[in-house]
C-alpha cells in the first residue's frame, strides 16, 4: 500500500545531542532530501549550512519595499505640491525636497518594516496551526531536551520504509512514522 493511502505524513527520528543532530542534518542533506526539518530546544550555530539552507531572500524583499516606500512618498509629495495643488509655503520653491525627506524616510522605513515582518512569516510558512510532528507524543520533548529530525511525505525521495531505515542508519533512535490516526 502506498504511503498516501495509509495517511503517512512523515518520519520522525530522535538524536542524542546537538552535535548528533548537526551531523544527522548533514547526512540527510547529502542523501538528497529537501522537505526535512531539524527541531531543537535552542538554536544551533551552523545549522543553516548543515541543512543546506540557502541565504534568505528576505533582504531583497525588504530592499524592494524600501525602494517602493521612498519613491512613492517622494513621488506623491512632488505630484501634490508641484502639479496638483501648487502652493507657496514660507517662500520656498514648490519642489522643496528638503521638506519631503522626513516623510520619504519614514515611509521607506514603514514599508520595509512591514515587508520584514510579513516576509519573514510567509517565508517561514507561518502562521501555521498544525504540523505532522504533532502526531508524535514523544515530540513534546523538543521543548526540553529532545533533538529531532523530521522528513515530510511531500519530499520526492520520501518512502516511509526507506526513510525510516535511513534515519536509523545515521544514528536516529525512537524512529516513528507520523501517521494520521
Amino acid at each position: 500500500m502506498s504511503d498516501a493511502t495509509q495517511n503517512i505524513e512523515g518520519v520522525l527520528a530522535e538524536f542524542k545531542s546537538p552535535s548528533d543532530l548537526y551531523h544527522a542534518a548533514e547526512k540527510v542533506r547529502d542523501a538528497g532530501y529537501k522537505n526535512f526539518d531539524c527541531h531543537s530546544p535552542f538554536p544551533i550555530h551552523g545549522m543553516d549550512g548543515a541543512m543546506g539552507l540557502k541565504r534568505s531572500p528576505l533582504g531583497w524583499i525588504v530592499g524592494l519595499a524600501a525602494l517602493v516606500g521612498t519613491s512613492s512618498a517622494l513621488g506623491l509629495q512632488w505630484w501634490a505640491s508641484t502639479i496638483e495643488y501648487p502652493i507657496i509655503i514660507s517662500g520656498k520653491p514648490f519642489f522643496s525636497f528638503q521638506a519631503y525627506l522626513p516623510i520619504t524616510f519614514a515611509l521607506g522605513v514603514l514599508l520595509s518594516a512591514f515587508a520584514a515582518l510579513i516576509g519573514m512569516l510567509v517565508l517561514n510558512g507561518l502562521p501555521r496551526f498544525f504540523h505532522p510532528v504533532f502526531y508524535s507524543d514523544m515530540f513534546a520533548k523538543v521543548t526540553d531536551d529532545g533533538f529531532f529530525v523530521s522528513v515530510e511525505a511531500a519530499d520526492p525521495k520520501f518512502d516511509s520504509n526507506q526513510t525510516r531505515a535511513f534515519l536509523e542508519s545515521i544514528g536516529g533512535t525512537n524512529v516513528e512514522v507520523l501517521q494520521k490516526s
Binding site: 514660507s90 517662500g91 520656498k92 528638503q98 521638506a99 525627506l101 522626513p102
Partner: peptide, 12 residues
C-alpha cells in the same frame, strides 16, 4: 547632518 540642516532650512 540632515537634522541640523533641515531645521535651520525650515526655520529660515
Amino acid at each position: 547632518a540632515f537634522s541640523q540642516y533641515f531645521l535651520i532650512w525650515y526655520g529660515n
